[in-house]
Design a protein around this nucleic acid. Structure first.
Length: 100
DNA sequence: ACTTTGACTAGAA
DNA sequence: TTTCTAGCCAAAG
């Protein structure tokens, strides 16, 4: 697989922007849908440029948000109706399935 | 050019 | 259940 292209980055950004309120997706699923070979790339994209995106709807598969953004993310998610219990996101209920 | 770092994940202990 | 390890890949120093 060729290194990451701008198309892939745009794909990830579009996918993130398409996540409905009250739902979440994992880095891995986004990477898979965008055709990226590693979820770290998605993490890099979010860290680099997430200004105009609902970045709080992207969560690790473990259900535990990464330190540093956990507080903000959990607060925003809970505000949208996502079940958050004891610092863990209720993925079973709110995780969107990966595309085809 | 090489090493370290990071908004990750799946599997092992 | 939680913590650790190896694999992963682009960016920064």
């Amino acid at each position: 697989m060729a290194p990451v292209t701008e198309q892939q980055v745009e794909a990830v950004r579009a996918l993130v922007a398409a996540i409905p309120a009250g739902r979440v997706r994992t880095y891995g699923d986004l990477a898979s849908d965008a055709g990226l070979t590693s979820p770290r790339i998605v993490g890099w994209i979010m860290r680099t440029d997430s200004a105009d995106l609902p970045w709080h709807r992207v969560v690790p598969a473990s259900g535990r948000p990464a330190a540093g953004i956990a507080a903000r993310q959990l607060a925003r998610l809970r505000d949208e109706g996502v079940g958050v219990v004891d610092g863990r996101i209720d993925m079973r209920e709110h995780r969107l399935p990966a595309g085809p």
